[in-house]
Computed example of a mutant assay.
Amino acid sequence: MSKSRMELLIYKTHQFNKTVATEFYLLAFSNLQNLQILIFISVLLAFISCVVGNSAILVLIRHNRSLHTPMYFFICNFAALEIIFVSITVPKLLANLLEASRTISFIGCFAQMYTFHILGVGECYLLAVMAFDRDLAINNPLKYTNIMHKVLCIELAAAPWLMGFIIAAIPTIVTAKLDFCGPNKVNHFFCDLAPIQNIACSNSLVSNLLTSSAVVFGTMVPFVIILGFYIHIIAVISRIKSTIGKQKAFSTCSCHLIVAGMFYCSAIVVYARPKGSHHDKFLALIYTVIIPSLNPFIYTLRNKDVRVALQKSKLLKVLCQNRISSQQSHSHR
């Protein structure tokens, strides 16, 4: 038998014997057996807080005409994105913590991965859009309403989703084409690019490079944009002579600055190292669960307009209840 035919036979035998992973096993926090219930309760409360809090923001802005402005239109989009964002990973994590289901199918894994990164990139660019909106409001208050018309607001709100679809697609597709024939245990609580690439049998150099490129365009570019807008905002505010004027100008963007800062501090640390590390899942827990649950409180407790709208809605509710009770007492008479 010739050498070439022997090599072909060995290759075919190897391909025949090679097993292909049809599902993945998410380790999550299985190494912390004593803390499983505590983590479950904490994550569940954070998830409920996020969904209820962001839903309340959506309802409040929808039913208060005083909040029908471009800024609150973007906050509405951000709240809706946050609800979907946590719903992609948290239910599976809760099932994992209860040991009800720690496996995820191959297709389900990459569907989760792609959707998660669409929303993650979308959130980064939406924060950049919100920074642009605040910069325009502070620097061109007289022209702000004319520039930020309804069509432009819709286009700016749609752009982050488009960027998410494009940027997340390439590394996800390339990673899905890798060979997974060895261990299928993923050291994470959801299907992320780096942990999945770490268990691939084939060379993941190309997918790692594409992941790094996606990180640059998906997180670093909007981060630089946000930084640029806030440098400009601070420069303009510093030229305002009145202390009250400075406080009023800064208050319009302080909530957004806090939210963007918290999100980027944890996300950049994780995705600046595409190969991942043992502590990445703990950092991921911060920006996928904890921060989204805090955002509604930041926008309500630190935002004067939202607080006023909340007080009015409470007052309106009391008045409605009093009117109903008076009508009922009148009908009994």
Results as ranks from 00 to 15, higher is better:
C50F: 10
A80S: 14
Q36W: 01
F47S: 11
I57L: 09
I75Y: 03
R102A: 01
I84V: 15
L97C: 03
L93Q: 13
S66K: 14
A46S: 15
P70L: 02
M71N: 04
S105N: 08
I107F: 09
S66Q: 13
I107R: 01
L60W: 02
I75R: 01
S42T: 15
N54Q: 06
S101D: 14
F47P: 10
F78P: 03
I75E: 01
A79L: 06
L58A: 02
H63W: 05
A56W: 12
I104G: 02
F74S: 06
I104Y: 03
Y72M: 12
N77E: 08
I39H: 07
F110W: 12
N54W: 09
L94H: 08
I84F: 15
T69P: 04
V43C: 13
I48C: 15
F110T: 08
H68N: 13
L93S: 12
I48K: 06
V86H: 07
A56M: 12
I48L: 15
V90H: 07
I39V: 04
F73I: 00
I88S: 05
I104Q: 04
A80I: 09
V90F: 08
P91E: 04
N96L: 05
N64S: 13
Y72C: 10
C50H: 12
I107M: 03
I83T: 09
T103N: 14
P91Y: 07
C50Y: 10
I39W: 05
F78N: 13
V59G: 00
L45E: 09
L94G: 07
L98R: 12
F40W: 11
A80V: 07
L58Q: 08
L93G: 11
I88D: 04
A100K: 05
P70A: 01
V86M: 07
I84Y: 12
S66Y: 04
I107E: 03
N64G: 04
V52K: 08
C50T: 15
L44F: 15
F78I: 05
S105Y: 07
I39F: 05
A56K: 05
Y72L: 10
E82M: 15
H68V: 00
I75D: 00
F74T: 08
F40P: 04
A111S: 05
F73T: 14
C109N: 03
